[in-house]
Amino acid sequence: MQTAAIEVRDLGILFRRNRRGRRSIKDLFGGASRRTRPGEFWALREVSFQVSPGEAIGVIGRNGQGKSTLLKLVAGVLLPDEGRVDVNGGVAPLIEITGGFVGDLTVRENVRLTAGLHGMSKDEVARRYDGIIDFAELDDFQDTPYKHLSNGMKVRLAFSVVSQLEEPILLVDEVLAVGDKAFREKCYTRIDELLAEGRTLFFVSHNERDLRRFCTRGLYLREHRLVMDGPLGDVLDRYNADTGMG
């Protein structure tokens, strides 16, 4: 029996609208009621699904329904308050363009730092460095502090580093929407190549064309719960009908 690349069971996470009403130590370490306190809300609740190795999954829903939160839970950036997330294999996360990068360090220094944080050895970084810079189209900016790059340049650098990782699961949020059209297409070609290698894709997007390009299956989040899991076309039809776009 094939082991799932990602398995999510009865997943739930509480967020707070402000700093008031913070839970006590007792709440955090046993004896906590799952009823919400004032100022709290469930960003996700009772979410369950499995992803097989090599699948390309599109996560769909209106803003504020928990799509990016779900991606961060799979990445291990956030921890659930209920249920569990099991990920079998390493992840290559492209979630936030500033994640892992240091403003005062140069592009060159940030490539070495960030690639190292993702698990690349010094030899691997040295071997892949020129390819990372070339893909990101930042040859003339290698000694420029990261904080002086435009948002588009930051996206190019982040994607270039992450796409060089050999992890089996690729997590992509809508950060690619910041890049220009030509570079976005370059990134999408690279995603096609990774999928052809058998990588697993977990992709959050509002762009129906992009979803249809990469994904065969969809997860539809509404009111912070998973309301449909099925073939991408069927899920998009349901979403468009619910939002009046069908």
Rank of each mutant, 00 (worst) to 15 (best):
L70E: 02
L73G: 07
I95E: 02
V87C: 13
G76K: 13
I97V: 15
D104L: 07
T98K: 12
G103H: 10
V102Y: 13
G66V: 10
V102I: 15
G54H: 08
S68N: 11
V77R: 07
F101M: 08
G99N: 15
V85D: 05
V87N: 10
D86K: 15
I97D: 01
G76Y: 12
L44W: 06
G89D: 13
L70D: 05
L44G: 02
A92Q: 06
V59Y: 00
L105S: 11
S68T: 15
R45D: 10
E96P: 04
V85P: 00
V59T: 00
G76Q: 13
N110Y: 07
V47G: 06
P80F: 11
L79A: 14
Q65L: 01
E82F: 03
L94D: 00
E55W: 05
F101Q: 04
K67N: 13
I57M: 08
V111M: 11
G66E: 12
K67H: 13
G83F: 09
P93E: 08
L44F: 04
V74W: 00
R62S: 14
G66Q: 10
R108F: 14
T69L: 05
R108G: 06
I57S: 04
L94W: 00
N88I: 09
S52A: 15
T98L: 13
S52W: 13
V87F: 11
G90P: 01
G90W: 04
R108S: 14
V85L: 05
D81T: 15
V111E: 10
N88Y: 14
V51P: 02
P93K: 12
E96I: 04
G89Q: 10
D81F: 04
D104G: 10
G58I: 00
L78D: 03
R84V: 07
G58Y: 00
T98S: 15
